[in-house]
Design a protein around this nucleic acid. Sequence first.
DNA 1: CAACACAATGTAAGCGCTTACAATTGATTC
DNA 2: GAATCAATTGTAAGCGCTTACATTGTGTTG
Lengths: 338, 338
Amino acid sequence: MTPPSNIPTLDDVARAAGVSTATVSRCLNEKQKVSEKTLRRVMKTVDDLGYTPNFNARAMAAKRTHTIGAIIPTMDNAIFARGMQAFQETLHDKGYNLLVSSSAYQPELEAEQVRALVARGADGLLLIGYERDPDVYGFLERRNIPTILAWNSIDGTDHASVGFDNCASMKQLTEQVITMGHKRIAYISGIVDGNDRAEGRLRGVRMGLAAHGVDPNTLTVVETAYEIETGARAFRSIMQAEPQPTVVMCGNDVLAAGAMTQAKELGLRVPEDVSITGFDGIELASVLQPSLTTVHVPHREMGRIAAEELIDMVEKRSTGAFRRLDVKIELRGSLAPI
Amino acid sequence: MTPPSNIPTLDDVARAAGVSTATVSRCLNEKQKVSEKTLRRVMKTVDDLGYTPNFNARAMAAKRTHTIGAIIPTMDNAIFARGMQAFQETLHDKGYNLLVSSSAYQPELEAEQVRALVARGADGLLLIGYERDPDVYGFLERRNIPTILAWNSIDGTDHASVGFDNCASMKQLTEQVITMGHKRIAYISGIVDGNDRAEGRLRGVRMGLAAHGVDPNTLTVVETAYEIETGARAFRSIMQAEPQPTVVMCGNDVLAAGAMTQAKELGLRVPEDVSITGFDGIELASVLQPSLTTVHVPHREMGRIAAEELIDMVEKRSTGAFRRLDVKIELRGSLAPI
DNA sequence: CAACACAATGTAAGCGCTTACAATTGATTC
DNA sequence: GAATCAATTGTAAGCGCTTACATTGTGTTG
């Protein structure tokens, strides 16, 4: 004896409209298979009853969810916000929903989230970067879940991806810095372990140095989490060394923001006493005083393309392409010639 | 004739372990009801087969999802990031998952998302602010979905909520500003329509003026979206008027950041030529130069409490409390006496 | 007008779980 | 040793949809 639930089901609609459940289902999903008269009547009943299809039942019967999952390292800072927004918008335009979770930069957590999203029936997945336990890729392949990787682009990889070359981009910025006469360079890096973007950027700096005959071993590197506060701390410790560097390059804009604030607190003028650079080109960079020299990444474009490509994969129009986007060095007030 | 899918199901596990599906289900959900020996054997089989429970099937059979839905106006800027992070962490600690969508400040979109989240089986919902179509509340009540409102707190409302008094907080800041001698005040407001937080803040400014005998009609108000760029534009248009205000108060820190950048561009010194204030106390405020006077909102605490209370409601330990949190005026460099 | 094609609708079998209830087991008691 | 009971396990009925297949109705054709 179940209490008569007041939540209308397909059955209720069918009964009220005097048709079978199959017909109602068709009205909802394949209108062209139903006569116009029936369609109108059924839709009116749907409205009258305030019927909403039960998503889980639907997913179960149809084995499609029109849902895409995304796992990003963090939502707490702006690095991924813009790109994910564009990703979401594009999905929405094409009739897909987005489920996001964050892994807090922890590989095991990411693996767990992959399973959770697949268990929820995600038709496809967006992951950040390449580096992760092969088991995860194995699982995805066995389950046949189209997956696209973003925010990085490494030569010689064949996985579907849309990103930019973190290493080459940072190398380019480093060469620019060196060209402006800087020799004593310090670098505040994000945590490299398990983060191929951070690793690539660090490698890019070293390659930039090497390309100009500077010994990469002279580079001071501090590795720390991507937060304003930790960026500030790293900057302080760097500037205690003797001789002080003439430029502190940062693994991203958030770290750079921390460095800039700390510079002011230490009474150092930017860029007269020390130059500072960032990476990403988030809004924060243009609000800083002086505004931040950074590497601008086309986040929105990356998000949009990722969505389009992933849907093509889900709908079997593509087997997964490799797309590399160009970045742009933004030279601004925080970097000056020596 | 279905192709033999390689995705293991409960049945597969049961067969392989030589028990019934009920027992496997118990091993997964109510370990205490199963003998230790069986439990071990079944769990090993689960592991060997790489079995993952199908979430949709589970939700359907159990009518519980351990999933909470949240709909916030935007993910694109930092206003909600910190609070949602804490909300998420607390949910996770208590064994719940979070599904977030953003409504882009559009009431119809929000209503649609509410239905979508409920259709997905969300056990409870977090919504921002009070103001929305009564139909939405009606729907939620009919479906019996516990819902908590956050980010605002209005006297005389009885809905479960955890927030702060936007109006009183802004009134307090306004009084502080007036006490410092400011008479010509301008205010850059967020879009008030459909946003009770923005509306409350604007009302708070007017009440603050009135309380000190300043005619609220002399207040210049520019209403615009919460973006750095629009904040900058609003500031420019305000400073073109004669006589210029001595202080530009802003509806949030993002607008204030735009105002500050624009002030520099116009060659105006802050706070010597014009004072600027914000609201929210996001990280951005402390990175600005000079650092921003703002109203600090305990976002993390709000997120945590919202999660705890909502779970209590879902698990029938509470019927929905009304919690008001205190804010703190942060007096910093961007505001000076006249 | 019988024969047929095609459009519209109906029937019913699952999808992979949870759980009420029934059955079995083994220990305990008298 | 029969009776009792708690602990453990099994049986099977759904949960609310989609969809392959069967059925019905309608207009065309020879």
